[in-house]
Design a protein around this nucleic acid. Structure first.
Lengths: 333, 333
DNA sequence: TTGTAAGCGTTATCAG
DNA sequence: CTGATAACGCTTACAA
């Protein structure tokens, strides 16, 4: 053992230790099959001996590949985002990619800067999570010099690689499940219409209602508790509904709380279904029936798709749809 | 306008466009004051004109600084972790640092690999979040060639830079608040003792109990709902307690649910206090009184401290203690 | 199968 | 104040 600590050992040190040229060392690292087993062993030995680790930056410069991807998200602290990140990271590490995390806070200026920064970082690919996709984002992405995958969203004309569930059918089925139980007054609780995936969710709900000749009723509130809780209190006092489908679990949990505190029994008087099947759905009382959006898998599959795109592997379908299903709990019967 | 898109424009292009040497371009980027205003303008003009963005990788290689830090966490999906990440990212972007995200899943082998990867990435500093700090981690950190800041944890002898609250006092005060109300049967709900910060929390609790000549009672359960919910059901059926302090909000919320479903009134028969003041505390019913751990700030301050360390700025105290306080809600009276 | 040498796009040290 | 020029640590033709 000569030196196991961090006094930078370079490829030259390994080369001289193993008594070969640096090119050979590089080869055993990148194309081991191209070097004679005997020398390969010798080099590997030296590498271990010196505790050598290739400098990723130098490697990146020489190869013009950084084996780094950027993950751009609006906000890390949303439960669904965090869980997706876990999926991304697990697969990234499997394929030896490094992940750069960037948040936009949903602000346009930041968004613009972030893309610039990401390009400056020389990433090989980008994972983009944004449920408020707009025309400008789409053209931004189309112009990207590196592959981009949309996570948990999709562009309606399937022009961009994406991984998500079929939001429209999910909400159609959810609505239909209430209709089949004979419910008439079925409410959809959504958020700002700017969220393009919400449009898909609402589309599914509305289609189901029309199919059953029922009147669709969509209300919108905020994702923030301080806003939506009083909103629900007021709404439930004045309106009598039999069932509600809510576009986010945390909002659904808030609705449950408002209803219960008003003395409305869930699920006897009001059935509530959430969306995403996050931890919130298991922690509410009663526990929340929820449409399961396999968010960890979405992260994992997105990352996998991105690796294929970066390697220019042939891909049959760049718009991956993952299966969803409804997890029944105690907020419905 | 010649070319605003991504056809890689280099420092050479800018130099020839501005009719100066590449060294001058580099200077206006890094030491603008060292170049004559007139030429500086000319260069800036060319930069904007060509849409030039310095290649961060080449820059990193030449300067031996990556302006990148690694954020090592056990798991992104814990609410407290996610919120801290937001704090880190906000400050990182302010100081033009890029953040590499790594998760260890709390597994030792992964942990080891991650540190290697991080060094290979040539990061300038490391933010380390791990509430299960062990001796081996500590020596690992001490041997690090780049600065490391512990987030939301601390090493008991203050040997390592860290940012956290004073866990011991926080739990002392929480316990005392119950004692002052005349409670006698006060329970501490903790998790695996391996969590070194839990030792601090328990220490504060025990000290308060001893000071009041009361018998401390610590129980341990898992952070996982499927485990702790039935555990609480069983425990509450067999034991009668007046108050409980729980080391994590999500676990406290689960305890509330178990109690309520058993017909135990919270807070009339049982007062419960959580820790962290996460979203869970606002979403439980009744809402949860919780010790506020300013987790966003911990992320932000940690990142700021790390920038100072990386710049070798003088620092009066590398063990930052942030203030905490108790947020009263409806699970206590 | 291996070595030589030319980059990769910057920064930084010299002179001038 | 500015320009050559040598690194930085690696990959990758091209030769041997």
């Amino acid at each position: 053992m000569i030196d196991l600590k961090n006094t930078k050992v370079t490829i030259y040190d390994v080369a001289s230790e193993a008594d070969v040229s640096l090119a050979t060392v590089s080869r055993v690292l990148n194309y081991p099959e191209k070097v004679k087993p005997a020398t390969r062993e010798k080099v590997l030995e030296a590498i271990k001996h010196l505790g050598y680790r290739p400098n990723a930056i130098a490697r990146g410069l020489a190869s013009r590949k950084s084996t780094t991807v950027a993950l751009i998200v609006p906000d890390v602290s949303r439960a669904s985002v965090a869980e997706m990140i876990n999926g991304v990271l697990d697969i990234a590490r499997k394929y030896d990619y490094t992940v750069l995390l960037k948040v936009t806070n949903g602000e346009d200026e930041v968004e613009e800067e972030v893309w610039q920064e990401v390009y400056a970082s020389q990433v090989d690919g980008i994972l983009y999570l944004n449920d408020e996709l707009q025309e400008k984002n789409i053209s931004q992405i189309k112009a990207s010099s590196v592959p981009v995958v949309l996570c948990n969203t999709k562009e309606e004309n399937n022009l961009l690689p994406s991984v998500s569930i079929d939001f429209e059918s999910a909400f159609y089925e959810a609505t239909k499940s209430f209709i089949d139980k004979g419910k008439k007054e079925i409410l959809l609780v959504s958020t700002r219409s700017a969220y393009s995936v919400n449009a898909l969710k609402e589309g599914g709900y509305i289609r189901a209602m029309y199919d059953a000749k029922l009147e669709p009723k969509v209300i919108r509130t905020s994702g923030r508790l301080v806003v939506n809780y009083p909103f629900f209190q007021e709404y439930l006092k004045q309106n009598s509904i039999e069932a509600a489908i809510v576009v986010r679990d945390s909002i659904a949990a808030s609705m449950i709380n408002a209803a219960c505190n008003l003395g409305i029994n869930v699920p006897d008087q009001l059935e509530i279904m959430g969306f995403q099947n996050t931890k919130y759905s298991k922690m509410s009382r009663p526990t929340l029936t929820s449409i399961d959006n396999p968010i960890y898998d979405i992260g994992a599959v997105s990352m996998r798709l991105l690796t294929k795109l970066m390697n220019k592997e042939p891909i049959d379908n760049v718009n991956v749809i993952l299966p969803h299903n409804i997890i029944l709990r105690n907020s419905t019967k």
